[in-house]
Design a binder for these strands. Structure first.
Lengths: 151, 151
DNA sequence: TATTGTTATACTCTATAACTATA
DNA sequence: TATAGTTATAGAGTATAACAATA
């Protein structure tokens, strides 16, 4: 086999983890993208364009995502006082509460995977994943706030 | 910190791997779902309902996905000879070639992550990911054919 | 002129409900 | 009756292009 077994394991694992995130989000009618928006805004207030950059999306896409989350009371918009073109986006209390619940639920849903390893293996896997993951502040921010501060 | 560091590492890593898959697919105008369809059909011929079950999607969703892939010449439909209600779906030569190219490109795109580890670490990470991942034949099948046969 | 954000438009992905054809 | 697949419909997510307001 010329195939890279690690590549295969990474892809398989990623699909399983994303499955957990997708299903957990779906229980609250949240897409993966909305999940990330909530996670990112948990400890930041960002303008529309900055948020779009975090997610790698167009600003027009961002407008729609914010609209729908705002309609549900999870986010809100504010005029930026320094630049009257800009719009700041921030999470509401309701959004904050939902984000906290999601974090718990995701951790719990990942437990079956984690519990397949003993404590030493868990530590080792964490180290290796951290070592393999290039610093990237835009990637996750779904679990704890500033989960992305590694970079 | 009560947070589970392994959970966080898994999520961060999953987003990075999915980013690679999404970007690679996008270079060929393929969504993540179309990528998976192609991967699954690489070495199987399935009926519409079976394919939908693999992906966890409704059969009506599946119809649309197949329509669009068929229009692009990547898949084709066949009447099932044994059950005249059923429709078999299979990958075309063009689809097979595209799938092979995608596999190469994905492997190459994952290399920056993999190369951050030395050979022993790579083996160890592969083992740990395999140990942590519950058997799941529906998850991946994006890289090599039968990448999902672990279960 | 360039940037920020929204809107109009179009396409993909997704599910639900209704339908046809077969079993 | 139940199952296989398609179609109609609706909504979310996405990008491109055009626009208004501001810098």
């Amino acid at each position: 086999m010329t195939a890279e077994p690690l590549a295969e394991a990474l892809v398989l694992n990623a699909f399983q983890v994303m499955g957990v995130l997708t299903r957990t989000g779906a229980e609250h009618d949240l897409s993966l993208t909305q999940l990330r928006v909530l996670g990112i805004l948990r400890d930041r207030r960002l303008r529309v364009t900055e948020l779009a950059a975090y997610l790698g999306l167009d600003k027009s896409t961002m407008s729609g995502l914010i609209d729908r989350a705002e309609r549900r009371g999870l986010l809100a918009r504010d005029k930026n006082p320094d630049d009257r073109r800009a719009v700041d986006v921030y999470i509401t209390d309701a959004g904050q509460q939902l984000a906290a619940r999601l974090q718990e639920q995701i951790q719990r849903a990942l437990m079956p995977m984690i519990d397949r390893l003993d404590a030493a293996q868990q530590r080792r896997l964490t180290e290796l994943l951290d070592a393999a993951s290039p610093p990237d502040r835009t990637a996750a921010a779904v679990l704890s706030p500033r989960a992305d501060r590694a970079g």
